[in-house]
């Protein structure tokens, strides 16, 4: 029980203390915020380099916006399957959890496949990290995000295998919610990267 909370007001069971019962969630949030700082640094470097350059290409003249918009849509869908998975296990539906975790992994894998296709296409066209500042910032930003998606798919794989071994039920699902936090964060970052790198 959280002493400060009990002194101020009676505990609302629908509002768990952020500190006592669920420390794993706090730790994931702290990690995500440090990760957000990394992405903020990369995005700031991108903005500074771009605004300080004498010439900069129109991004959409090099990058394919429709394909990436589709990729954004796929990632948003995978976020929805993730919340459906968390919601399923909160009701004790292990089969639903396994189905939705698998669908989330599928969405992440399709995202990575499309990104690999895009990178191959761009590299064949001559855009590389060392060719221009545009290439350097593009590959570092999308690559750093892509590594997060790949890590997320692997992380989801571990949670799925634990779910298959019957580790989660209606009373024990914190690890599922925590992997969900990570997955939504990766989606959130992509929303920003898509806007700043592809559209603006």
């Amino acid at each position: 029980m959280d002493h400060a909370a009990t002194m101020e007001q009676p505990m609302d069971p629908a509002q768990p203390s952020p500190l006592s019962p669920n420390w794993g969630k706090i730790m994931m949030w702290l990690f995500l915020m440090s990760d957000a700082m990394s992405f903020a640094g990369l995005l700031c470097a991108y903005a500074a380099v771009r605004m300080g350059s004498t010439v900069w290409p129109v991004p959409s003249s090099i990058l394919g916006v429709p394909l990436t918009a589709l990729n954004t849509f796929i990632l948003i869908c995978s976020s929805v399957t993730m919340v459906k998975g968390v919601s399923a296990i909160q009701k004790g539906d292990v089969a639903g959890l396994k189905k939705f975790l698998a669908l989330t992994m599928l969405g992440g894998s399709i995202f990575l496949g499309i990104q690999a296709y895009e990178w191959t296409h761009l590299i064949n066209e001559g855009l590389t990290v060392s060719r221009s500042l545009f290439g350097a910032t593009f590959f570092v930003l999308t690559g750093f995000h892509g590594c997060h998606v790949l890590s997320g798919v692997i992380y989801l794989g571990f949670i799925l295998s634990a779910a298959a071994r019957g580790r989660y039920n209606a009373h024990n699902w914190n690890p599922v919610e925590i992997v969900g936090l990570y997955w939504h964060f990766v989606d959130l970052i992509w929303i920003l990267v898509f806007t700043f790198v592809y559209l603006i």
Partner: peptide, 25 residues
């Protein structure tokens, strides 16, 4: 995404403060 998928709007206010403060940096 943060408020609803990540449940930030439904958590205690303290968690939201923990999360938002580094964004000031």
């Amino acid at each position: 995404v943060a408020a609803y998928f990540m449940h930030l709007a439904l958590e205690k206010r303290t968690l939201a403060l923990i999360v938002v403060s580094p964004l000031v940096l």
